[in-house]
């Protein structure tokens, strides 16, 4: 229960005990689910029970369509949405949705650390702060793969296919460039939509494809590694400020520990998920040769990157382009 729990909005100091409700949309076994559990364990231990963390996975409490609004108004204290879902509020976050932003997960820590150019733009983002959202950390999931009912080996195979996307202008732009028709849709609806044929395909990390059983209703999975899925661990800013200083410190430390743990397991969880999918044999896994993958890349890089330079900042785009070459 949440009776007698912390004060969700403003006031502060409503007693010594606080409850943090953390709502997310994936299963407890995803990297995000496991990191949430870690956060709960660490924080409850370090605060000796002064803070209780209640985790609500699987869109149980809030889904993609209402969690952002819920964290802003204090309906929940913490959420961990994909970064793209915050891009309507903070355009700068579109940077994380750029296609082929990394080619390998090893490049990630450098890209989004607290002190990197990209990282600073997120941790200290003014638009988010103005909307009562405090960025606590960035959690990794992994690289995107394409799932579909039609074999996808080159960009042209996507022509005319209806692809579910997370609502982000950058993501929509590169899919359209490849020729796909995009439909934004809440995560919890995707399985049913694939099953009922509302959309032909979607893209996700192995762990999400596995935990949401997308592979059961899709014929092909193309290893495209075409983007990186980052979650923004976001907290209601007023709630954070209502915590006593020592508890604020404990929360920050618990987040950091959970983030480190998250980075450690993300790759493993994805590899395990891939094994489950392969063993199920319900979908064929298509490996792309490096030329084939390059064809996807050449169609959208750097054109899409430059298209969003105004939103993201020309300096950041230049730095990213310099890194790549």
């Amino acid at each position: 229960g949440v009776r007698g729990a912390g004060q969700g909005g403003g006031g502060g100091g409503g007693g010594d005990e606080f409850t943090i409700r953390l709502s997310h949309v994936v299963t407890a076994d995803d990297p995000k689910g496991k990191a949430s559990q870690k956060f709960k364990e660490v924080l409850e231990k370090s605060t000796e029970g002064r803070i209780t963390v209640e985790i609500y996975p699987n869109s149980e409490l809030y889904g993609d369509e209402d969690e952002i609004q819920a964290v802003q108004s204090g309906g929940v204290e913490m959420i961990a949405p994909a970064s793209s879902k915050l891009t309507d509020i903070a355009r700068q976050l579109l940077v994380l949705d750029l296609p082929f932003i990394v080619d390998d997960t090893s490049e990630v820590p450098d890209l989004i650390s607290r002190d990197s150019t990209v990282g600073k733009g997120i941790y200290t983002n003014k638009d988010l702060a103005d909307n009562n959202i405090k960025v606590m950390g960035l959690w990794d999931n992994g690289l995107y793969q394409i799932t579909s009912n039609k074999a996808v080996r080159k960009p042209d195979d996507l022509r005319g296919q209806r692809i579910r996307i997370t609502p982000s202008d950058a993501i929509q732009a590169y899919w359209n460039k490849w020729g796909a028709k995009t439909t934004p849709m809440a995560f919890a609806e995707v399985f049913t939509a694939l099953q009922q044929g509302v959309v032909d395909g979607e893209f996700n990390t192995y762990s999400n494809i596995e935990s949401q059983r997308f592979y059961e209703v899709q014929k092909y999975i193309t290893i495209s590694d075409h983007g990186y899925l980052t979650y923004v661990l976001a907290m209601n800013n007023k709630f954070f400020n209502s915590l006593p200083d020592d508890l604020q410190q404990a929360v920050v430390e618990a987040v950091d520990e959970a983030s480190a743990y998250n980075r450690e397991i993300a790759d493993t969880v994805n590899q395990e998920a891939r094994k489950v999918i392969e063993e199920a044999g319900t979908s064929e896994i298509i490996e792309l040769s490096s030329e084939d993958r390059q064809a996807f890349k050449d169609a959208v890089v750097p054109s899409i990157w430059n298209q969003f330079a105004d939103d993201i900042g020309q300096d950041i785009i230049d730095e990213l382009l310099a890194r790549k070459s």
């Binding site: 609004q69 802003q72 909307n131 439909t183 934004p184 849709m185 809440a186």
Partner: peptide
Amino acid sequence: EPAARTVVTPA
């Protein structure tokens, strides 16, 4: 509420 103004529908 502020959220009703800042959040936009996905499509």
